[in-house]
Design a protein around this nucleic acid. Structure first.
Length: 250
DNA sequence: GCGACAG
DNA sequence: ATCTTGTCGC
């Protein structure tokens, strides 16, 4: 039952896989870090995986696949909408990332099995969730997080610490980080801070967002199901100068 | 009971 | 997610 059709089936899958989440650090600091995101245009979609060098944040690989939606957006079942395309993109990758930075929640989910947990468990690759807004839980009463970059506050839901609000830049809205798989919350937060030298969102997320969005524009010339446009191509459009107007937010 | 609800 | 220009600020 890996490709559920109904809400009940999807919830059953989450209940079944949630027990496989590992909340511990494994391996060495990642050399390759991947950002994943999906963009939509009606029932069509483009999923992107962009791999960056963990130390320099330079892009080393990327894959964009296009296809069609197979599951509607249902709060709490978001993963079932994005996972098929993201897995297809990961398979096309010529590199093996050691960390997946997902655009959504990990354990900060009503059933403690958000997108990051789902992708982590299915791939076995350490994964973290980095969301722009909260889904469950709050941090208000648990001490306001300081205005400075690096400040954090526990994200608590139903008396349980499910993640952390993380201020990635001075004086800007925090993002919400949670464990996906094979990582601890502290390590997940550290990774996010290393990936946000300048903007609110991780570089991985920003690059993946741009990639899948561009993938939607590039037309649909007779696709045959998750066709991929991949490889390390000398970025023709985006260059060094004039990239100052790019803001985060969805 | 009513509203809120990752992207 | 997506609809959307100019504008304020560093």
């Amino acid at each position: 039952m890996e490709q559920p059709t109904t809400v009940a089936q999807a919830i059953a899958v989450q209940e079944e896989l949630r027990g496989l989440v590992e909340c511990v650090d494994v391996g060495t600091p990642p050399q390759y870090v991947a950002g994943l995101d999906v963009a939509y245009d009606g029932d069509r979609l483009a999923a992107a995986v962009v791999v960056l060098d963990g130390a320099t944040l330079a892009e080393v690989d990327r894959v964009v696949v296009r296809g069609e939606t197979t599951f509607p957006y249902v709060p709490g079942l978001f993963a079932f909408r994005e996972v098929p395309a993201l897995l297809a993109a990961l398979e096309q990758l010529g590199t093996t990332p050691e960390l997946l930075v997902c655009d959504g929640q990990g354990l900060a989910h009503p059933r403690r099995f958000g997108l990051a947990c789902h992708l982590g468990v299915l791939t076995g690759i350490p994964a973290i969730g980095a969301a722009k807004t909260t889904f469950v839980g709050s941090h208000g009463s648990h001490g306001e997080l300081a205005r400075e970059r690096g400040a954090t506050a526990e994200l608590v839901d139903d008396g349980e610490v499910v993640g952390a609000a993380v201020r990635t830049q001075d004086g800007i809205k925090p993002i919400y980080v949670s464990v996906g798989h094979r990582v601890t919350l502290a390590t997940a937060v550290a990774h996010v801070l290393r990936l946000t030298p300048r903007y609110r969102l991780p570089e991985t997320t920003r690059r993946a967002d741009r990639a899948c969005r561009d993938g939607l524009s590039d037309g649909w010339a007779g696709w045959g199901g998750f066709l991929a446009d991949s490889g390390v191509e000398p970025s023709p459009t985006s260059s060094a100068a004039g990239e100052e107007a790019a803001e985060d937010e969805g």
